[in-house]
Design a protein around this nucleic acid. Structure first.
Lengths: 208, 208
DNA sequence: GTCGGCATACCGACCGGTCGGTGTCCAAAG
DNA sequence: CTTTGGACACCGACCGGTCGGTATGCCGAC
């Protein structure tokens, strides 16, 4: 009863050290991606993380909160990355190509988050959903800014609305999770470059 | 007790005549799209359709069956449409453009089905999921055939794998539901033509 | 001693699916 | 013409089970 360094709670022996909230987030991500948000019970998550429900509800207000935190983390990271690339002083075409390729690579690196984004967003509570959408919108707008810049300078075609082009492109990106397999023959960067090429070439003015 | 044309069953007075299975499918589609498959209870569906659970389980083996039927219906229709366009004797570029534009238009016309496809496919039982995937794959392969035809003839670039291009395009199509609003300024056909243009232009050989 | 960091036991709501029944129609028997 | 029987379409109360969330208490650290 008075043993030191008790290993009672949970069976987790491998990835222990990690803080409890981190472990919860990590395993929740995997489970949500694999089985969907609604099909994953809180019980499963806490068992996978080697803790109990008490622990989870100590750190998170609800199951929804868990999902929201996953979203927020991904969005912060992607926004940060885009901002860094978009505001460099490289030529426009290079900046857009880098932004496009990068978002593909990061989406593939975190396929789970991507899958969740796709399938479970509408299961968030309305206000949290609104917050996520707002953040996502900011991201799209920044990206669209690059396209519009090229349209003003004459580098890109102007017969297609910039927002249509951006939605076209991000549709492709969001759907990577439904077909990309790591066992395939193409690396994440190769896919990213292909996608960036397709975008840039689709944006060439029709005349030439 | 012996009245003719009794209107007892259900309260549905507006859209009655319609057969019960059709009504169930119709309302299930709307609810699944709005709230997601798991969040929609069988009770809600039958109430919306103006029948009872008994009726539903008389016509469908399970809630899963309902979802599967929705998928099957959409897939049959889209496959039929693609086959009709792809096998015409018009020039290749026109056939591909028509196929691309058509799938966008039909996806927008049936935004609900599209949304369900996106969000709820993984909630089907494994065997039904397999069946849906197989059918979907056939569709993609037919579409890819058009791209490959153009690559062989030299009309399209050959530095991008055809399957990457097809996945790129269908990602965009599947995501229409997440941003397209009927209240927007563009009609379904306009979006379809824009998307078709972007695809065709992305496929132009890099040299010119 | 009290406070953060959990564990454990438990609750009420709800959900998919079942099952014994009911009303209606039609066809064959009487 | 009437009766009977049974197939079909549907009803709705009910069940076992699960799930998100909570109430309470223990325990080591400060």
């Amino acid at each position: 009863m008075t043993r030191a360094s008790t290993r009672k709670p949970g069976e987790a022996t491998g990835d222990d050290q990690a803080a409890v909230p981190r472990r919860l987030l990590e395993h929740a991500t995997k489970l949500f991606a694999k089985k969907g948000f609604d099909r994953t019970s809180v019980q499963e998550i806490v068992e996978a993380a080697g803790v109990t429900k008490g622990a989870m509800y100590h750190y998170f207000g609800s199951k929804d909160d868990l999902l929201y935190e996953i979203y927020a983390r991904v969005l912060r990271e992607q926004t940060r990355q885009l901002e860094s690339v978009a505001s460099s002083d490289a030529p426009l075409r290079e900046r857009l190509a880098a932004a496009a390729s990068d978002v593909v690579v990061s989406s593939i690196d975190n396929l789970d988050d991507n899958t969740i984004f796709l399938q479970s967003m509408h299961q968030l509570s309305p206000d949290k959903q609104k917050a996520v959408r707002a953040e996502r919108r900011k991201y799209h707008e920044r990206f669209r800014g690059l396209v519009e810049e090229g349209q003003r300078s004459g580098e890109f075609r102007t017969d297609k609305p910039a927002d249509v082009v951006v939605d076209f492109f991000f549709g492709s990106v969001h759907h990577l999770g439904s077909w990309y397999r790591r066992s395939g023959s193409l690396t994440a960067r190769q896919i990213g470059d292909h996608y960036a090429d397709l975008l840039l070439d689709a944006l060439r003015p029709p005349a030439g």
